[in-house]
Design a protein around this nucleic acid. Sequence first.
DNA 1: AGAGCGTGTATGCATTTGCAAACGCACTGG
DNA 2: CCAGTGCGTTTGCAAATGCATACACGCTCT
Lengths: 146, 146
Amino acid sequence: MELPKVGSIGEYIREQRTQAKISLRQLAAQAGVSFPYLSQVERGVRKPSAEILNQIAKGLRISSQALYVQAGLIDEREPDSDVLAAIRADVTITGRQRQVLVDIYESFRKENKAAENEGAQPTQPAEPLDAASLNGHATSEGYNLP
Amino acid sequence: MELPKVGSIGEYIREQRTQAKISLRQLAAQAGVSFPYLSQVERGVRKPSAEILNQIAKGLRISSQALYVQAGLIDEREPDSDVLAAIRADVTITGRQRQVLVDIYESFRKENKAAENEGAQPTQPAEPLDAASLNGHATSEGYNLP
DNA sequence: AGAGCGTGTATGCATTTGCAAACGCACTGG
DNA sequence: CCAGTGCGTTTGCAAATGCATACACGCTCT
């Protein structure tokens, strides 16, 4: 039975890859998997095993757990969305950084709620947002959200 | 391959099962997998996929992550702070937004660590990050979300 | 003795993973 | 104009997963 409804794991991977601005072949090479297979995975044609998922996570430089959660392979009991609580409880960041994270998170929530109440119009979804600019020193200034 | 000695995963499962004092068939039923296959998994004859692993974890009432770590599918190099866990578990934001938050948070951490070491390390201690270098530099300015 | 029920284990087989090779398409630039 | 690269996709095919079925052993009854 072909149920294309499979987890959005493929979309997520592709999203991460395009955000990182690397090609399918590059990611495949870094992850140590074959590019054709990666293509199929991204389109949901094939469902990768845990090992492959782990390698892809490595290639993407993201946490394996992020992928597993996305793939629905980790239940992660109760999301409950206490992101804010976790941020406020974090002692490894400064107060100013904390405020930045809180602001961004809340504005995301607000944006999503607005988009939800509007029809199917995705407001302004086209965002460049390079994930690769990590060392680009993303400090408090520079974020401005729609 | 004849004997993939790597998998202490099977032993771990069997250990957990016997410790829980349930039979192979019972666990298989609770996990929703076939008992013969579970037997093979426990003896390392077969290497279960992530889905099966997840179901087994459910059946054993243990954390999925514990199994993944045992299976070597999660590197566990990072303690994975509570903030990151909360962000990843949050279902009220999009994957892109999630990535933004994760990136910003990690870059904060990186900044702080660099500041802590006081001038020894230049912001990129471990990762070669060929993806970005291949791509040539992205932005290098802070985040700007349109 | 058996019949019955419990355990874990070896088969056969449909389905699937994952790869190598070949393909089509868009861009170059000699 | 078409060789040379890059991209993503499609196509067979060996190897593996995962299951249903059948097997071997241990235990307890009547």
